[in-house]
Design a protein around this nucleic acid. Structure first.
Lengths: 339, 339
DNA sequence: TTGAAAGCGCTAACAA
DNA sequence: TTGTTAGCGCTTTCAA
């Protein structure tokens, strides 16, 4: 059987509390006792039961991280950032992947809360049905929470970029390069990122007195297949083709470029495509991607730091917004206006 | 304050044990009692404390997953597979990323064991110093364990492909295409994958009566930067240049191709390059990658299933090997021999 | 079918 | 500075 604190106490001829004090690096025992206990611990390679400690101390030093798809490079970076900050600050991370289902998301939250994570970082999905009721429960309990996206109507801690602005900047950039017919492949899932990027797209068009063409606003899944399919359809329709397409993310853009190339349409000579996220691979693809850089790793780190700060922060519920900077990365998928 | 099982018991006028039975879907209460308890639980939206349950029941329904780099697409896929299988079987996953440090790895194992995960899936790093002593501890405790790689001298559960064979096949393929001067960019970290792929490379050369040229065996970091750097150096040396390079993984291959292209060397016309892993992006890059497919997602899933099976499996310690199939994926980075 | 009680391995008052 | 004791919120015998 595994050793317990009681065993150690007996072996060292001290009380459990003395061992507990030593284990937690607190003051209250003499140096002699401490070193005696320490040596027993080392000798038997004693590894404290954190479950028992968690129950007694009412904290688990674990947080939950809920994202959509683990193997999406954007989320992978976020996860890494969260993990990095957490491990530095002594927290473990329990992973949750909702895979685009908000019921799943609610379910995951339930089990993680049940497992008493000290706080939660959530990339929120907004379905018409579910909305944020499950989040508002947590909020009303004062559960430490950081959201990776904007949420209206609730005061929450958020860490994100300004997606509206970023999309606005991206589309404005396209307009500056002389484009007037710009399509947008937006993420079909009703999420804050999806909606905000769409909004930024529209706003840029409006501010530049360009018409909003419904045929140019196309819902896609957020992966290469989504971009591929949408572009194939769009460019085989007998409508006036756009000269540029602004994509929800780099994956969509990659799929789109492949479709274009396959149809014999040159990128960027015939049509420009703009991505979003600046994932690691965006510079290695056939046409290195012009995109907007989203500091995913930093988002993860900031979120974790903010969360842990809030966990420490007495019962106070923060309402802090951390908005990180985005940046247009010029590569080769958008034709530069040389006029 | 949060509700406890005692609260629910009082509210429903029953004993704690009755509530416990209902909570765990066991038999031993009448339907009437059960539904009464259920309604109270629902009414108050009671969420059991899994920490307390874990302490009493001596299982956490969590497993630990320790890999090297979260945002490496190969590991991301493995993580996804593990997560998928675990969530289906009612387990949570605690993430650990060792970031190439075997001290880190040992440390992570320690905390995860302390948090009493029911089992561990580990992609093992082998440093000369640390070796597997920390694993053998777990083994001697009969700790449920699955290793994502081969380990000699210890009987362990492993899930992996046959890396020696896969590398052998890859290099043989290159030889079939007429290559005789084949370089290998191998992962500088002393891991089973690294060593086995190197071995397969050598064996293929030997079996085909080709010399092993030390100048052609180059240690690299396992990312694009590593491949880029190594190729730049190799092809600026005044030695006979290889006509093909077999890379530790796709990332290395991508970096290598970029270096080649930058130097004005055509891929595959002048030099062929072969990857390993078949990550999602390998088909989207400038020269779509010929590579060996590693079923990362399935590896993750199998590992999780095997682990959970072992967790259930009384005190028995298995020594099961699950070797998944690899497969050469022909794309465009290796020139096909048309003779 | 029910309930009482002991115990899981810790922490944290409180006394000594 | 030490040790004793009462929980933390569950599960699980064991009687009733």
């Amino acid at each position: 059987m595994r050793m317990t604190i009681t065993d150690i106490a007996k072996l060292a001829n001290v009380s459990k509390s003395a061992v507990s004090i030593v284990l937690n690096n607190k003051t209250g025992v003499s140096d002699k006792t401490r070193s005696k206990i320490l040596s027993v611990i080392k000798k038997y390679n004693y590894n404290p039961n954190y479950i028992a400690k968690s129950l007694a101390a009412k904290e688990t030093k674990s947080i939950g991280l809920i994202i959509e798809e683990i193997d999406n490079p954007f989320f992978a970076k976020v996860i890494r950032g969260v993990y990095k900050a957490c491990s530095k600050l002594g927290y473990s991370v329990l992973l949750g992947s909702a895979e685009l289902s908000s019921e799943m998301e609610a379910e995951i939250i339930r089990t993680l809360v049940s497992k008493r994570v000290d706080g939660l970082i959530i990339f929120p999905l907004q379905s018409e049905a579910a909305d944020f009721t499950y989040l508002s429960n947590l909020l009303s309990e004062n559960y430490p929470l950081v959201i990776l996206g904007m949420v209206t109507n609730y005061a929450m801690n958020v860490v994100d970029i300004d997606n509206v602005k970023a999309a606005y900047d991206a589309v404005s950039y396209l307009i500056q390069q002389g484009h007037t017919k710009i399509a947008h492949l937006f993420w079909e899932v009703h999420s804050s990122h999806s909606m905000e990027r769409l909004e930024g797209y529209k706003q840029a068009l409006i501010d530049n007195n360009l018409p909003i063409n419904k045929n140019y606003i196309i819902p896609v899944s957020s992966d290469t297949a989504g971009g591929y399919k949408a572009v194939k359809e769009l460019f085989s329709k007998s409508i006036k083709h756009p000269s540029a397409v602004f994509c929800y993310n780099d994956l969509v853009a990659m799929g789109g470029i492949n479709a274009l190339l396959e149809m014999g349409i040159k990128v960027p000579e015939s049509v420009s495509v703009m991505g979003f996220d600046n994932i690691d691979f965006s510079e290695y693809i056939k046409v290195p991607l012009t995109t907007v850089h989203v500091p995913a790793y930093e988002i993860g780190k900031s979120a974790a730091k903010l969360l842990i700060k809030q966990i420490g922060n007495s019962p106070a519920q923060l309402n802090e917004k951390v908005i990180l900077e985005h940046k247009i990365i010029e590569r080769e998928s958008v034709l530069i206006n040389r006029t």
